[in-house]
């Protein structure tokens, strides 16, 4: 340290020093350059492959704005169908999320590497979680519709399964990030597995779990509004119906309802996040 200080002092105004020699300019970040070049090439290639019909793009854009114009004013007349459908979407999201949270609470503790009873078991649960998480909710909905028929039930199941996949992953991660010393201390005190979880793990990760749950509910309310598009109940179905019959004024009303739903959930969850 003292040597270094001595050197710095000398370097204040070096009269004759090796500092005179110019150093070569570094070539810059190769990796970043390669990524950028690959990205540009992929973009051009993708655009070429998509083979977008640009006259259609132009005509369609004009049509889109004409349609937007026709959508006004929104037609509120069918509110007695639309509002219950919106509530149904909300209920589908709440129920699906609650089911996912309850099941994932059990499975996440088994899947977390630091407190699991069996490593192989933990990996298996995580593997299934990945499968559930990667398949989109709406694909799950399609599968459940084939199995149990149309209506809100396949929607609830689809949301529950997809959320379960994500919640197991993030809950287990929160538990794994926990300070190992705390678990050790409880083990040293002679606590058994359930006691460690109830007294050590849950109090520590509670806020993390709560904020993930709120985030998931927020996402699920967004997803439940679109499930109706494939016949799994809720407001999405009303929108599909309105668009199919070219009833654009009703469609605008339904879109506004969906916007208000998701927007107010975002506002509420922002408030809750501040409190947590």
């Amino acid at each position: 340290m003292s040597q270094q200080i001595g050197k710095e002092k000398q370097n204040i105004y070096p009269l004759v020093s090796s500092d005179k020699e110019d150093i070569a300019k570094p070539k810059g970040d190769r990796f970043l350059k390669i990524i950028v070049i690959c990205g540009v090439l992929l973009f051009v290639f993708s655009l070429y492959q998509l083979n977008i019909d640009y006259t259609n793009l132009w005509v369609g854009t004009i049509e889109f704005f004409t349609m937007l114009g026709e959508m006004f004013p929104p037609d509120f007349s069918e509110w007695q169908y639309v509002i219950p459908a919106a509530i149904e979407s909300l209920q589908v999201a709440i129920l699906g999320t609650v089911i996912a949270v309850v099941i994932s609470l059990v499975l996440a503790f088994l899947a977390a590497e630091n407190i699991t009873t069996n490593k192989l078991f933990a990996r298996t649960i995580k593997g299934f979680a990945t499968l559930m998480r990667v398949i989109p909710t709406i694909v799950w909905a399609l599968i459940f519709i084939v199995a149990v028929g149309l209506g809100p039930l396949p929607g609830v199941l689809a949301i529950a399964i997809h959320s379960l996949g994500m919640l197991i992953k993030v809950f287990a991660q929160s538990v794994e990030e926990m300070d190992g010393g705390k678990i050790e201390a409880l083990k040293a005190a002679g606590a058994n597995w359930f006691q460690i979880i109830a007294q050590g793990v849950i109090p520590t990760v509670f806020t993390a779990l709560l904020s993930w749950t709120i985030l998931r509910l927020e996402i699920d309310i967004g997803e439940s509004t679109i499930l109706g598009l494939v016949g799994a109940g809720g407001i999405g179905w009303e929108l599909t119906r309105a668009m199919r019959t070219y009833d654009f004024n009703s469609a605008l009303f339904i879109t506004i309802v969906i916007f208000v739903m998701i927007f107010s959930v975002e506002m509420i969850s922002n408030r809750l996040k501040l409190k947590v």
């Binding site: 998509l50 083979n51 977008i52 019909d53 259609n56 793009l57 369609g60 854009t61 049509e63 889109f64 004409t66 349609m67 709406i138 967004g222 997803e223 509004t225 679109i226 598009l229 999405g236 929108l239 599909t240 668009m243 070219y246 654009f248 469609a251 879109t255 969906i258 916007f259 998701i262 927007f263 975002e266």
Partner: peptide
């Protein structure tokens, strides 16, 4: 905020009405 709070699938549904089925709508 308006763009964000209307799900992508619903945008697609609205866009299909003016551009017709195809990758243009998806993109």
């Amino acid at each position: 905020s308006i763009i964000r709070n209307i799900p992508g699938l619903i945008w697609a549904l609205i866009l299909v009405a003016s551009y017709g089925i195809g990758v243009t709508v998806g993109t």
